[in-house]
Design a protein around this nucleic acid. Structure first.
Lengths: 135, 135
DNA sequence: TTTAATTCCTACTCATTTAGTAGGTTTATA
DNA sequence: TATAAACCTACTAAATGAGTAGGAATTAAA
């Protein structure tokens, strides 16, 4: 399996916020209730999204979270890259990977690169807006 | 990351065997040496491939492993499905998944299904023969 | 100015998976 | 009969994923 619960939850939160169609801050409690996700766990995910600047959090009474941009401006990649350790299909294609000694003779590298590109293109061409109101 | 070391090693072994172009049995020791993979670990992977009937193992002196079919007849899927727990991008699309309660209202299910299909098609349309002599 | 609501932060726990090791048993061939 | 090989069971160690606990800081409203 490729996408973690963390990533799936992150997307659901972003969609949830987009669907509220409000400029005010939405508290975690509400999101967690609607999405039926543990508040504490969700908290750790929202932290990643704030750190990654796709959300803004405001503390205190009346606080909560809100999107930083219009849904059309978020690609799926821009969200998932915050929650997933990596989106690459194999370790040798990760950003921080040390160069593989066997790369010159590797029969499979091309195939992995092709897959990586395929997945990346797929996620790059879907935006948050595309997911709203689905089904 | 999506594909395990197990899966990558399995493919390398299959390619190695195909490139030997022999009908006789090739001992694990030789494969492990050529591929620079621990014999013991490789053993556990070859067990999966034998169990999945893509290889045949022969014990005793002069024994080893050999392909059951021509390289053109092996899709990548047919090999990886033996080593990977699952190829589905999310848990709700796994074979044994219990039906998701939220599926009717899920905004992301369609996207996951699309990705699943994309990856599956990719691996279904590459055969072992396509990888031989690459690079 | 106090109180309540909220995010933010640090530190755990528990289960699963992955990668790998160790040692012995069975089987076939030379 | 010796030897070379696959086969089998069991173990370890590290990483990751999923989730929990408790409190500190901050903000707005009463």
């Amino acid at each position: 399996m490729m996408i973690s619960t963390r990533g799936r939850y992150a997307l659901r939160v972003m969609i949830d916020l987009a669907e509220q169609k409000t400029d005010s801050y939405v508290p975690l409690k509400e999101i967690a209730a609607r999405q039926e996700i543990s508040e504490k766990y969700l908290e750790s995910i929202l932290k990643l999204l704030v750190k990654g600047k796709v959300l803004t959090g405001l503390r205190g009474k009346g606080g909560g979270y809100r999107l930083n941009k219009a849904p059309e401006e978020y690609t799926i990649t821009s969200i998932l890259e915050l929650t997933e350790e990596t989106l690459a299909p194999v370790s040798c294609l990760q950003k921080d990977a040390e160069p593989c000694q066997r790369a010159h003779a590797c029969r499979t590298l091309g195939m992995w690169k092709g897959l990586d590109q395929l997945v990346r293109d797929y996620f790059d061409h879907i935006t948050l807006a595309d997911l709203l109101g689905n089904e």
